[in-house]
Each structure stands twice: as structure tokens, then as C-alpha cells.
């Protein structure tokens, strides 16, 4: 059996389960059509809503960008780790060079203050 066939089965089942669970209240729960204008208002502790969801800190974008860089690096390290025994010392030297370049980038990022949250 193809080892990825169970992935497909579980995926299909998970989607069905999610849809059923998500829609359960829609069919079982009460549906009252109240005319109150505040009923479906976004939650704001009971007072009129202040502000909108518009601005977000640029730091979140920066974190996302840095994440992509370092996560890809982690994946590369996985490739090396799987073939670690076959590559031997050659692989270690290669990875050392790779890590040195990466750490240089990391030091730059830290020095520029990209990881500061104030």
C-alpha cells in the first residue's frame, strides 16, 4: 500500500469531520431572528465599538520574513542530517560553511535591531 494513501484518507475524513462539527450548531442550535442591532456586533465589552481593525505593527511582517529565511535553513539542515552518516566529515565541513554564512546573516539581523520589540 502506498504510504501516502492513509494521508489522503485521513485528510478527507478530517475535512468531513470539521465541516460536520462546524455546521452542527447551524442545524441543531436555535435560530432566532432578533431585531436588536447590537446582537451581531463585534465584541467590545458592551460599549460602542472604538476603532477598527486596520493597523498592525510592521514587526509582525519582519518576523514572518525572518521566519521564512531560518525555516528554510532548518529544512536544509534536515537534508544534511538524514545523509549525515554517508557524507561523513565532508558534510560537516560543508554544513559549517553554510552555518557560518547563516550566522553572519543572523548577527546582522540582530545588530540592525530587527528582533527588537519595544
Amino acid at each position: 500500500m502506498n504510504p501516502y494513501l492513509p494521508v489522503l484518507i485521513v485528510l478527507v475524513f478530517a475535512i468531513i469531520f470539521g465541516c460536520i462539527m462546524s455546521g452542527l450548531s447551524h442545524f441543531i442550535g436555535p435560530r432566532k431572528r432578533t431585531l436588536s442591532p447590537v446582537k451581531d456586533e463585534p465584541y467590545e465589552c458592551g460599549v460602542p465599538m472604538v476603532g477598527e481593525r486596520d493597523k498592525m505593527s510592521v514587526k509582525f511582517y519582519l518576523t514572518a520574513i525572518l521566519f521564512i529565511l531560518f525555516d528554510i535553513e532548518t529544512i536544509f539542515l534536515y537534508l544534511w542530517a538524514t545523509t549525515f552518516r554517508e557524507l561523513g566529515w565532508f558534510g560537516i565541513v560543508e554544513v559549517t560553511i553554510f552555518l557560518v554564512i547563516l550566522v553572519a546573516g543572523y548577527v546582522y539581523v540582530v545588530k540592525r535591531g530587527a528582533l527588537e520589540w519595544d
Binding site: G29, K39, D40
Partner: peptide, 13 residues
């Protein structure tokens, strides 16, 4: 209790 609750989608969502 959660399943028997009314489903509310906030305005503007």
C-alpha cells in the same frame, strides 16, 4: 451546551 448554542457571525465578518 456549546453545540446547542445559537450560531452568531459578527457583523462585517
Amino acid at each position: 451546551k456549546l453545540i446547542l448554542k445559537e450560531e452568531i457571525v459578527p457583523r462585517g465578518a
